[in-house]
Structure formats: C-alpha cells, structure tokens
Design a protein around this nucleic acid. Structure first.
Lengths: 253, 253
DNA sequence: GCGTTTCTTGCAATATCTTCCAAAACCTTC
DNA sequence: GAAGGTTTTGGAAGATATTGCAAGAAACGC
C-alpha cells in the first residue's frame, strides 16, 4: 500500500468517526504507529485533520461543525427537546432571527425542512445551513467572539437594526423575576437589536437557567412573547411571566 | 501491446480504483515496473494522473477554485505552497482582508502565528480562526452562497466599504492579459469593495488559472499590486503584469 | 509530585526513484 | 528482405524517500 493510499484511508475513516487514536489508525491501515503519526502530520499540514495527544481529529466534521465543548454535553437532551419543540412552533415561510448559543443551535437543526429565511449571528448556525442550499441564510457581520462562535460588535448590531423578522429565537444566561440576563456586555447590545427587529420574541431557556442571574441585564419580561423550556417553571417566575403576558411552553418527551 | 494501449488500460484501471501501486499496474499490463513508471510519467504530463511514491493516483478534475471543500485535494500542494509563501509576505500587525476560495484559505492557515487583525467574508476562514482567540477576526455580513461558503450581497459589500486594511489577499477564477475574472457575478461587487478597501492587493493564483477567462470581469491588472503563484507566469501575461507594475512572486519548494 | 503514555528525534533497513546503458523491437530506405 | 537508424524496453547502480525502532523529552492523568 502506498503512502497516499494509506492517508486516504485514514481520512475516510476519520470522516466516519471524527476522532481516532493513532493506535486505532495503525491497526486500520496495518502499519506502525510511527508511520501513522507521520501520515497524520502530513494530513495536518494539508489542513484536513488536527493532531491531538494520542490521535487525530477531523478539522471540518460534516455535521456538528462547532463544538461548544464546555457546554456541549451539558443538558444536551433537554436542549434537543427544546429545539424540536421550538421548531414546531414556527410556521412555514416565517422569517427568523436565530441567536447564538447551543439551545438555539438545536432549534436550527430542526428547522431545515421548513425552509424559512434565516438571519443569524452564530457561526455554528451559519455552518449548519451552509451546505444546504434550500433556504436563504443571512449572516450578520461582526467580530468573532471565540469561545461561542458568535459575531458581536457594531457591525452585528447595525446589521440587525436594518432588518425586520417575524420571529426571534433567543437564548440567555439566566432568567429571574427581574427579567433576562446574559454573560457578556457585548452580547447585550446585539440581543437588544435582535429583539427590536422581531415582531415576536421566543426565548429558549433550559431549566438550569431559572433563577440564575448573569452579569449583564438584557431586558424585562415584558419584552418577550414566549419561553420554551424543558421543565415546569418555578412558581415565582411563572407568576411574573404570567403577569408579563409571556406564553410558556414546556417541551416534554 | 503498444504503449498507448497500455496507458489507456492504466488510465481505465485508475478510473475504477483511484490509486494503484506501480507493481499492481505492471502486473495488470504485464510489463516491467520501469515501463509502467514511464507510462505514468507520461500520463502525468498529460494531467491525467498524479504520481506518488510507489504508485499513481487519478487527478480529480471536478473542482474549481470556489467550490469550497477543505478536503479537496485538487492542486492541493500548489495551493499550500502559495499559501505559505503568501503568508510569509505579510508583516506582523498588518490588518488583512481575506477573500473566500481555497487558495486564500490556505494562506489563512499559515497566518495564525502572526496574529494580525483579519477581515473576511469566508465562512471556512472564519471557522478556522474561531477556535483560536489570539487574533481578532471580523466577519462581513451577507447571504451565504451555499456551495462556496462565501458571504455575498449588499450587507457584505457595505461592510467592506466601511473599512480600510493594509493588505487584501484575494483569489480569482482566471487571469489573462485583459485582467482578472471570476466565476460568479455575486462575487464581483464584493471583491471590488475589498480591493478598494485595501492599500495593497495580493492575488493568489495557482498556475491552472493562467490564460483562463471566467465569466465575469473583475478588474484590470493595474488594480493589483502583487501576484503569488506556483509556476513561472506565461510570457505574455508576464509582460502585461510587468507593464501594470505588478510584482510577481513564485512560490517554490 | 510521579508514573504512564505519547511525542520527537535520530538512525539503520528497506523500498522506490532517477539516470544511464545495452538489448530488443520497430521503422525507414534501398 | 537487409542495412541502418530510431524508439522502446528491461535492468543495474547510485540517489532519494519511506519505514520501523529506540532513547530521551514532553504531556497527561491521578
């Protein structure tokens, strides 16, 4: 087997599994670990994989391109539930604003069949739709906020000030009776512009956010129209939401 | 069996299997390895196969510059060479505009250590930098042009009209004595805005683009400052570039 | 911290490539 | 059909590239 053939097979394997140990790969192509290591170094210079201790990972995995690693596994199934439920609430042909954040990302994953027009400031969401050319996806400009893959800053805010949409699908760092908050000032300006640009504002909030207060205040409960969550809302917050005429949807299995 | 017959059979075989070792091929056509090697060299000069250590691989003609797939291996090593060379030409702390396209993507890959400020309309480039929080990356807004992962449209053009950068690193579909052209009208407006926003314009053009005329004319040779490529430029184009005072850099091993 | 795993580096063994040459096949010309 | 020249072929020698291994360095997990 020639070197290229081996590298091709390694690449193909990684396309399937996204990550593999060198040992595993050396067995796959029936050669020493040294050689596999060299192959992987070569594939790295080509930008196809990224080397890690003990293995190699595909640079551009097909599907979930972005790993919000720290929070990714956290509350995963809840977020998926919320995502599916929220996507159900969207009418076909509505124009959407989709916020960054893992929960919103999961909404986006279930939206594809509905073929709406989508406006987003989230790189992961943009990547999700980049391959499918069925629907029009507009990306706000902005500076990349690295950990989250969000576009922030004046360019992003301006972009949202220029448009109008039927629905904004948002996420946040916390919700209390005082309103909704998020973890970084840079996000706040943009989220306000998003809320302002949408006729209807839906917040996707997993239950771990209830009663939590993040550092920057985003808006009062009055400003929003619906909350999609995975568990019953605590009584106090529920009362405040009712008073603010916010509809609450609980996604259940 | 004549030489041509043999080469035809080698070609046919490679169409099926994509790779083959010389040994394998020599058995197939029942001749010495030396002869097969010569055949493969000939097929390489015709651009049908690519030689590798120990074998031959079919070249895959189905890609053009802007079909974006980082795993695409068409002209890969050339693009890598260009990418590295072009990245070398960038001074630390220069602000950059990076165009979409595979060649520019490879430039971006070698830029990371330089930590400049980067402005791009390419989703793949944005993704590349999204994880590394060393440098500031600004993404132009715009509609995702699906196949390519480029952001296009008014939002993108406006974003580039607002900024100024030291260098623009660009790619294109073709270059002739008449100037530079590209394959999609949507790209043209944006690329013009990019060129206008940069003090210095560098085009990364692999040798397969020489003499090729894409559908939309982008600009005259006067408008650009430097061409980075992988082979010596054909005489006629070279003369035109000299007349337009364009510096030509050839990336070699 | 400390033991373990993995990585890097240098090296020798092996495989392949290049370059050359002589033999064979083929073509031209008479 | 034979002589003389050209092209193609197979192979050999030295150059180059690849491979697997081992020792020390670095990174990781506990």
């Amino acid at each position: 087997m020639t070197g290229e053939e081996r590298q091709k097979r390694i690449e193909d394997h990684l396309l399937k599994v996204e990550f593999a140990s060198l040992e595993e790969l050396s067995e796959l192509v029936d050669t020493s670990v040294s050689t596999v290591r060299r192959d992987v170094i070569l594939l790295e210079t080509k930008g196809i994989v990224r080397r890690t201790h003990g293995g190699a990972r595909l640079v551009n995995p097909k599907s979930d391109e972005f790993t919000f690693n720290t929070r990714d596994t956290h509350q995963l199934s809840e977020k998926e539930l919320i995502g599916r439920k929220c996507a159900d609430l969207i009418q076909p042909n509505q124009t959407l604003i989709i916020d960054a954040g893992t929960t919103c990302y999961h909404v986006a994953r279930y939206l594809e069949p509905k073929a709406p027009q989508v406006f987003t400031n989230s790189l992961p969401v943009a990547n999700l739709f980049a391959a499918a050319n069925k629907l029009e996806v507009v990306v706000s400009g902005g500076v990349i906020y690295p950990r989250l893959g969000v576009l922030v800053g004046p360019l992003a805010v301006e972009a949202f000030q220029k448009i109008r949409a039927d629905v904004a699908i948002m996420s946040c760092g916390g919700i209390t009776t005082d309103g909704i908050s998020n973890s970084h000032g840079l996000l706040i300006d943009m989220q306000r512009a998003m809320i302002h640009a949408a006729r209807r504002v839906i917040f996707c909030i997993d239950s771990s956010k209830f009663g939590r207060q993040s550092i920057s205040q985003l808006c009062d409960l009055d400003a929003i129209d619906m909350v999609v969550t995975d568990k019953l809302v605590p009584a106090e917050i529920g009362k405040a939401l009712k008073k603010a005429e916010v509809e609450v949807v609980v996604a259940a299995n």
